[in-house]
Simulated scan of single mutants.
Amino acid sequence: MDSITHTLFGLTLYGAVNKTNMTKGEKRALLLTTVAGSQIPDIDVISAWWDSAGRYQMWHRGITHSIFLVPVWAGLLAMVARAAFRVKGWLWFLIAMLAVFIHDTSDIFNAWGTGYLEPVTAARLTFGTIPIVDLVFWAVMAAGFAYVRFGRGRWPSYRVYRLVWVLMIAHVGIQTVQGMTILQQSKDKYEQVALAADFVPGVFTIIGKQEGMVTLSKGSLWTGFETVAELESREGADLDMLFANNAKAKTLVEWAPFVVIVDDGERIGVYDPRFYRNGQSFLAEYMDR
């Protein structure tokens, strides 16, 4: 997910805790662990500062997003909370664990994916059933905030935010059931297949590769799918020279489920077709011949 969504997740998690008997210091500790826990896996962005080997694509959303590091991040945040706000108990560790877990797990549902199981495997785990920026999440959280801020209902605020979480989890479940059904139906048509969710709920793009041809089909379970692009991949092209001159290209091939290879005599390159929009992909690496 994007940074704004992760921040909103942290604030919504903070709101879902019953703070009736908490001191001011405990509330501050809670805010720290929920919001910082919702952001801390993305600390890997600083690796771009020293990336001279073209490996950032693998480092970002890599080991820092591993499920095995969740208790490590939680322990660090709990120590900071206890030291800064003089609080005691296991709540800060447990709530930080939940915040980090939500961050790492929510990221596997969009097409970018994460190194969820690093260091066991470097493969990116991705379902592609939720867009990186999901406006449904924003709308549900905004509705919860508006009810708490302006509503006159009898529900305490923490129950409202708990309902918000239930609705968001239900949205992920509904999207994922649809996406996995679509993928299963597509596997017999292609050698390799991936999925990318649209901003409109229930709408997906199937990206299928068969004998050097990549087909993008957009639609839903209810409307069917229509081909929106056909991309030729030059599978016989020699990529050794590209990799030698552009390390990021080799990293992209390692990172993506599959790529489209371009070789038109003037340049050679690779791109990820899951992010193909308006005639090009924003994840692409080339070199001139």
Rank of each mutant, 00 (worst) to 15 (best):
M58K: 10
F109D: 02
L183K: 08
A284V: 10
L125N: 00
V136Y: 02
D264F: 05
F109P: 00
A229P: 13
L163G: 12
V80S: 00
S52C: 04
N245Y: 04
W73Q: 08
G54V: 11
V70Y: 03
A36Y: 06
E266C: 09
R82E: 14
M58Y: 04
R234Q: 15
F145Q: 07
S186W: 09
P119S: 04
I182K: 01
V262R: 05
L13S: 04
G153V: 14
T121K: 06
L239C: 09
R82Y: 09
M168C: 15
R274H: 12
G89I: 09
W165G: 13
L135Y: 08
K250E: 06
A16S: 15
S157V: 06
F101N: 06
M97R: 03
A78K: 01
V172G: 02
D240R: 13
Q175W: 03
T5V: 11
A81E: 06
K218L: 14
W138I: 15
T251Q: 00
N278K: 15
D107R: 00
F199Q: 10
P201K: 06
T129V: 04
V193M: 03
V253F: 05
D42G: 07
T12H: 04
S66E: 09
I207R: 01
I130D: 05
A146E: 08
K24I: 12
L117V: 14
V133E: 07
M79H: 08
G62Q: 00
S38C: 09
W155I: 13
W155L: 15
A244K: 13
R267C: 04
Y276V: 13
V80G: 00
E266A: 08
L76G: 06
L91W: 09
V270K: 01
L216H: 02
T64D: 09
A284K: 11
F85W: 07
F225N: 06
I130A: 06
F101G: 10
K187D: 02
W50R: 10
W165R: 10
I63F: 11
A146P: 04
G265D: 05
K250V: 01
S52T: 15
R277C: 12
T205M: 06
E226Q: 09
F275D: 11
I261Q: 01
E26P: 09
F243H: 05
T205I: 07
V262P: 01
E118G: 00
